[in-house]
Nucleic acid binder design. Structure first.
Length: 374
DNA sequence: AAATCTCTCAACCGCCGCTGT
DNA sequence: GACAGCGGCGGTTGAGAGATT
């Protein structure tokens, strides 16, 4: 590194040395940090005040917590970000020992990618447009022709968020899988082009969906178990249902649910304060829907649809055609592909990666409320 | 073992808002 | 009200560590 790149106006730039750190610590311990502008001169440092302030605030402060973010911290960051946006300093104020810079870095390098892969727009915390679109089409395709599942008003009893519950599982499984995340979400590309990526949903979303479906492996489903059971007993029932589908077992169709259980947030159709009768009815009906042969057909088609790109690697996945083909035929062999599924145990470290579906539930319901879909 | 690639995070930059004059 | 100085914030960069080929 040349002198000109490290020094400007006689002020040093770049990484701090241990000696500089010690000078700064000694000075602040003695005099406090009143005037950052005059501090470096008084402390014998050839740094600008700004640099000193940042070094102290982000690294030398005695109350800084080091090490990996905990599950609770991650959860808090996502929750706070969904409310506050990129107000890193405000978020940091709610996380003792963590700096805004640290949180910002962690968000950009970990959480943002994770949310995106799960089908959540990390900027708005709403479901990504492509996922909503799929849910909507699935919903229409599944239930518009089934009057018994419709309310008198004509509204389908299974709403997009319920279908998203299924999709979130698919997406979460995908993130746990052996797929190279960079296929979906190349780090450097995302880093530089994430805004563009998010703005160009129709193009990128097809790729996302393509990758998700192409790389999904049913034997990852049980990885959800810990999370789902922790999240909610009712979710566990749904999970078991999906699992048994994949094992080609006869799914026990629940006739009723223990309504004393808290319903998943995802299925809250109101503001979340009270669980309406409608919500309860929807939840039970949704379980019936997931057990329907029609659902089986579509679900397995999604899993089986492996050839979604043409020779040039351009996705040719077309939701409408997929659904029209799946709803018009109900091949019994659809289930066979997963009949030999073996389930693996949840892992240790990577369990962290599954928590997101909790967040998905929380945020999707909000997002759908916001978008007027619920 | 070396070269290359990927990822992380400390540090910088520029802008903004607040405060004092 | 206009201006200057300062601190704080969020976006971005790039060095270096680690992973992969």
């Amino acid at each position: 590194m040349t002198k000109s790149s490290t020094e400007k106006n006689g002020l040093k730039k770049g990484p701090w040395t241990p000696e500089e750190d010690q000078k700064l610590i000694d000075y602040i311990q003695k005099h406090g940090h009143g005037k950052w502008r005059t501090l470096p001169k008084n402390a014998g440092l050839r740094r600008c005040g700004k640099s000193c302030r940042l070094r102290w605030a982000n690294y030398l402060r005695p109350d800084i917590k080091r090490g990996r973010f905990s599950f609770e911290e991650e959860e808090a960051i996502i929750q706070l970000h969904s409310v506050l946006g990129n107000k890193w300093s405000t978020i940091a104020a709610n996380l003792p020992g963590r700096t805004d810079n640290e949180i910002k870095n962690y968000w950009n390098t970990h959480i943002k990618k994770k949310l995106f892969k799960m089908g959540i727009d990390p900027v708005t915390h709403a479901p990504r447009l492509d996922v909503l679109q799929l849910a909507s089409i699935l919903n229409t395709s599944l239930f518009n022709s089934s009057p018994q599942f419709n309310y008198p008003s004509g509204r389908s009893v299974i709403n997009p968020s319920q279908l998203l519950s299924l999709l979130s599982t698919l997406l979460s499984c995908q993130t746990r899988n052996n797929v190279n995340p960079d296929n979906v979400f190349n780090h450097s590309n995302f880093h530089q082009n994430d805004n563009q990526l998010l703005q160009n949903q129709p193009q990128s979303s097809q790729m996302q969906l393509h990758d998700t479906l192409q790389t999904f492996q049913p034997n990852q489903v049980s990885l959800q178990e810990n999370l789902i059971s922790k999240s909610n007993p009712l979710n566990m029932e749904l999970h078991q249902l999906m699992k048994s589908k994949l094992e080609n077992q006869t799914s026990p169709i629940p006739t009723s649910f223990s309504h004393q259980n808290t319903l998943p947030n995802l299925w809250h159709c109101n503001n979340g304060d009270n669980i309406s009768d409608l919500s309860v009815a929807q939840s039970s009906s949704a379980m019936q829907c997931f057990s329907s042969p029609k659902f089986n057909t579509i679900f397995n088609s999604l899993l089986e649809n492996q050839n979604l790109c043409n020779n040039e690697g351009v996705p040719n996945f077309n939701l409408s055609s997929l659904l029209s083909s799946t709803t018009s035929s109900s091949s019994p062999s659809a289930l066979n592909s997963s009949s030999s599924t073996t389930f693996v145990n949840g892992t240790t470290e990577d369990e962290r990666d599954t928590y997101g579906s909790n967040m998905l539930m929380y945020n999707i319901s909000n997002g759908l409320n916001d978008s007027g879909l619920l």
